[in-house]
Structures are given as structure tokens and as C-alpha cells.
Design a protein around this nucleic acid. Structure first.
Lengths: 329, 329
DNA sequence: GATAAAAATGTAATCGATTTCATTTTAATT
DNA sequence: AATTAAAATGAAATCGATTACATTTTTATC
């Protein structure tokens, strides 16, 4: 395991010159450059990032905070972040928090201890106070889910508008008894999506029925099933369900199928996120597509800007309603 | 951003003493220990891992090489690796190779450049020669998929036996016309699973029909659909399909449904891996469960042993056939 | 060929920790 | 109290790079 000293010796130059060759500085004559490159090859030398990182006070690692890797929603965002990061010489550390403050703290420590240069947070349950405190010293970007007004730049979509459009679509194909399968309103996106739901109903003169707004604890398949069971047991059965996540919607789908009813003839279903599996179900799922990959690249670019000390503004990206079998027989 | 020097000054001791307190060495008197701890708190000091890592010639990061994060198969393995790693003070860097040697090389460079202490490789398409070369110098463990006889320790299941049991199950419930939906036989697991399929057929006196072994380029939903299309077009339609991955099986399921046939009455389906979604399909999928979480923790433990210079042996874990709706009306 | 300017290279400090070895302090024993 | 052993602490080297500044070499100009 050769180091820069040995390369310098082998090439008959100083370590400074080797370093210059390593970093592509053009103040080295082509003759010495060749000598150094030969020495590097001869010794099979690989520069240690440990030394470089210490000297440069950077780790070239960025953290991605997500509640759960099992949720396919994050996949494309992660890919976006990763590709942008790689292209700029950064690597990503994927951090599953399980929405657990202790685990969260392990990862926060990584940035406190200089093992990471910044954080893209996608955890809606993140401790906002800690995040805010951390953001005073370190580079942090919120992605998809965000706390507003806490001064940390974010990239996201207009959830209210997306929700409005999804519900409007259901109304336009003739539904009036529409359930909103939402998650806990402690999350901003849940409140926004409810607002969009309400706006669509109001605009079309449909009264809000409390029984038609149902909350789930988690955005999972199992919770979707469970919620759908309750909905199917309602006195006045709705004819459509708008779930704020595809996983919930797929759970609902499964439950409706199991009860012998037909999607979309008996009950239409709309999801949210356009995860890969939303196209694999039977029937395929109508859903709101977020530009996840773009969101990822944007977040990463913003974060790297922040790391380099540049000013960064929040970004709101476009979304799109994807109409598939679950709302069109 | 305080460093160890400033803490030492503040506490009126030497940096060596501060370091000793930091590392919990018991050669420090409780009086000075308190002084140091107060200084640390007062200055809000966090030890830099950059300095520590350089001195210790370690990064405390381990790489996980997977072909594609979108494949849910890897999720529980990753969780296993991560939890074991965290418990031993290591962090994981998730590396998606896209089975692309160039991307692979980016990550190999991380270990060459000391930014990672070892690798858990789960990429079946990994360049075995490079891996072998790398394993001479660095700690590497193969997980799930492995190249045999290249001297790199692995943890996996007995694929031949698992496949044998899955096919035997189909035979026992009355099937004789059974398709094997396999992936490319350049992969060891594909060859092993085919061997198990053949053994089960042979044992029950069923002749091998070449038309009933079909190869897919990728273990994806789309390729499962595509392959199933071909199968449905066969002169003598089979009554059962054993796919070597759940994603393939779910693709097949979708295609069978779309053609108006019924699972399992017309065609039974068995998958492999027991990914989360195998329980969300309609019908739910019979599948072979690999002990993924355990595989992950085992691989991580083996890797850390290897990093610490200890001797490591390969491990073969148990598997289990999970019988669900797709083979039992 | 002398001189100045530009280019190339080297010396040594630095990043922030850990650790060996030497030294000082404390405790134990007589 | 003297002596010795044990415990606590410190000084300085070290890990492997980068870079400011100094110095040397090359090139350009007259």
C-alpha cells in the first residue's frame, strides 16, 4: 500500500508535485508529469481519501434520510440524488430512520462528526427542532416532505393541487361519494391533500361527509387493507376511493377484490406516487405521478450548492395525473 | 467548530488525555475525566472522524453492491447488514451497479482509496476477476449470489434444494406440465435452480420438455409478463409455472389474469424470494422464502470479522416454501 | 548574454485525531 | 521517611494528503 511519499521518492520529485499531478493542476511540466504517472503505475498507488478528506475538511459523503427503505416511493428519488451526487464526486449514505429519533440521531452524528457533508431529509417524522438546529451549521435540504417556515430549503410538488386534480377526475367520471384515505394530519402533505380534496368537492357542490375521510397510521399495504375494510362496512358505501399513497391504494384494491366487488365498476380507486407496482396490480392503478427522479437530482444539486456555500432557494416541481384501469373500466 | 487541541487547552490537560477520555480508556483519573468532559460540553465539541479515520487507517464504512435498488428482494438483506453494521460502529454505503462495470469500478475505487473498509457483494453480474483481485487486498463477502471456487467467502441458501422442493410441491398437487421460468444460465443460481427442477421431475418420472424451460433476460415484472405471453401461446399449455423470482411470477400472474385464465385453477404459479409484494397480489403468491434478514446480518458479521483480520468460513442458510393462494385454490 | 518575467518545483505547515514512550504524580510497603 | 511500584499524564511522532510560500529553473526580450 504505497503512499504519496513513496511515489514522490520513486519519481524523484517532491510530494507537492505528485499532489499536483493527482489533482490535474497544469503547473507541472509534461516531463515530470510523465515521471510521476509512471511511478504511480509502478507502485500501484491509489491516493487515500482519508488523508485528502482530513486536509480538505470534507468527506464527500451526503446523507439521505428516509423513514423506511421498503417504501418504493423513495426509489427514484434516491436514484436521482445518487446520480447527481456521483457526477459531482459525492457518495450517498442511505439512512433508514424508522421514524425513530435515536436512529435519526446516529445519522445526525455522522454530519456532526464530519463524516458527512450534508443531508437530504425525506423523513416526514423527522425532529424538526433538531433539524433546524443542525441546519444552522450544516447543509440540509428537505425533499418531498418538508416543514415549512423553518428556513430549510426544500424541493417538492404542489400537494394541494395534485390532490384537487385527482379528486376532480373522479368527479368528472361521475363519482360523488368519494372517500379520502389520508394519513395523519400532523404531516403537512396530509393537510394539503385534504385541502385539495375539499376544494374539488366544494367546487362541484358536493357536501363533505366526515365518514368519507379516513385516517391511517402508516402508508402501507396492510393499513390500506384495514382502512378499506372499514370503508366497505359503511352504511352508505362510497363509489370511489382516493388514497394518498399507492401502497394504501393497493391495499384497498386487494380488499375490494377480496370482498367480491369490482374495480372500477363498483368502486374506483386512485393512488398517489406512481410507484413501479402501481402498474403491476390488477387492475392497474390510476395515480398521481411525482417527478421523483427530477426531485432527487434537484435536491442533490441544491445540497451540493449549499455545501459549497452558495445561496439556495426552494423549488416546486410539476406533477401529473396518470389515468389507468382502476378508474376507467 | 472546536477541535481536540482547544478542548485540551480548555481543560488544562494534554490532547493525549482528551483522546483517552474520548475513547473510554480507564487510565484517566476521575478528576481529570470530569474536567475534560466539562470542557467538551462547554465547547460543544464533536470529535472529527476525519482525523480519527486517518490515524486509524479505517473508514468504518462498508459497501453493499447490488445490481438495482428497485428490486425489493434486497431490502431485508440490506436491513440485516445495516443493523449488524451499526451495532459494530460501521455505516453502510448502498451501491447500485446497474450491472455496469464502470459503475462497479467507481465503488471498487472507494475501497481502493480507503474510503470503505470492505464490500458485501450481491451483484450476480459482478466482474469476478476484479472481485478476486480485490479480495486479495481487501475484505469482501459474497451474499446470496456468489461465484464458487474463487476463494471469497459467501453466505447463501441451497438453491438446488429450494427449487427441488418448489417443483415437488407442484407435482404433489397434481401438476405434470410445469414450466420453469429461469434467468440466464450464466448465473450460478440459475443453473442450480434448473438442476433442482430437473431432479424433481426425474424423481417423479416426468420427462423434461424443452419448451417448458424458458429464459428471461432480467428478473423483472415486464420480463415475467413477456415470458408468460410466450408460454400461453404454446401448443400444449402447461398447468403450472415456477418462476425463479417473485417479480417474474407477478408478471406472469398479471398476464394470466389478463388472458382470462384463472390462477391457480387454470395455471398455478410459484415464485421465489418472498418479497413483500408477493403477499399483496391477487391471488397471493406461493413462494420460496430465503432468510434474508439473517443473510444480511450473517454477511455483515462475516465481513467485519474479515476486516479485523479474522478467518471466515462460508455459510449456507435454510429456506422455506410458503404455500399461498397461487397454488391452492 | 544579461535581465526580467513566467513557469516549475520544493519545503514545511496543516488538517484532527491516536499512540508510543518518557516523565511525573500518587499509592503502597517497609 | 525512604523506596519502589503503579497510575496518570504529557511530548511528540504519525496517519496521508493539500497548499502557501519560497526557491529554482526555464523562457522571453532586448
Amino acid at each position: 500500500m504505497a503512499n504519496i511519499q513513496q511515489v514522490a521518492k520513486q519519481a524523484g520529485v517532491s510530494v507537492a508535485t505528485v499532489s499536483r499531478v493527482l489533482n490535474g493542476q497544469n503547473t507541472v511540466s509534461s516531463k515530470t508529469k510523465t515521471k510521476v504517472e509512471e511511478a504511480i503505475k509502478f507502485l500501484n498507488y491509489e491516493p487515500s481519501m482519508l488523508g485528502r478528506n482530513l486536509r480538505n475538511s470534507e468527506s464527500r459523503i451526503i446523507l439521505i434520510l428516509i423513514p423506511n427503505i421498503s417504501n418504493p416511493f423513495y426509489l427514484d428519488i434516491i436514484k436521482g440524488i445518487e446520480n447527481m451526487a456521483l457526477s459531482q464526486g459525492y457518495n450517498i449514505l442511505l439512512c433508514e430512520t424508522d421514524s425513530n429519533p435515536d436512529k435519526e440521531n446516529i445519522y445526525f452524528d455522522l454530519v456532526r462528526k464530519k463524516m458527512a457533508d450534508g443531508i437530504v431529509s425525506m423523513d416526514p417524522a423527522v425532529n424538526v427542532d433538531t433539524l433546524k438546529e443542525l441546519a444552522r451549521t450544516y447543509a440540509i435540504i428537505q425533499c418531498s416532505e418538508y416543514g415549512g417556515g423553518i428556513g430549510i430549503p426544500y424541493v417538492t410538488i404542489d400537494s394541494e393541487e395534485a390532490s384537487y386534480r385527482a379528486v376532480k377526475h373522479l368527479i368528472q367520471i361521475g363519482h360523488t361519494k368519494i372517500v379520502l384515505m389520508n394519513s395523519d394530519e400532523k404531516f403537512l402533505y396530509a393537510r394539503e391533500r385534504k385541502a385539495g380534496y375539499q376544494r374539488a368537492l366544494k367546487e362541484h357542490g358536493i357536501a363533505l361527509d366526515k365518514d368519507y375521510v379516513i385516517y391511517t397510521q402508516e402508508l402501507s399495504f396492510a393499513h390500506g387493507q384495514q382502512a378499506m375494510k372499514k370503508i366497505l362496512a359503511l352504511q352508505d358505501r362510497p363509489t370511489a376511493v382516493f388514497a394518498v399513497s399507492d401502497l394504501l391504494a393497493i391495499g384497498a384494491l386487494k380488499e375490494i377484490n377480496a370482498s367480491g366487488l369490482h374495480v372500477p365498476n363498483d368502486i374506483a380507486v386512485v393512488g398517489f406516487d406512481k410507484i413501479d407496482f402501481s402498474n403491476m396490480t390488477n387492475p392497474t392503478l390510476t395515480t398521481v405521478a411525482q417527478p421523483m427522479y427530477k426531485m432527487g437530482t434537484t435536491a442533490a444539486a441544491m445540497l451540493i450548492d449549499k455545501i459549497k456555500g452558495r445561496e439556495v432557494d426552494s423549488v416546486i416541481l410539476d406533477h401529473e395525473l396518470i389515468i389507468r384501469e382502476s378508474t376507467s373500466g
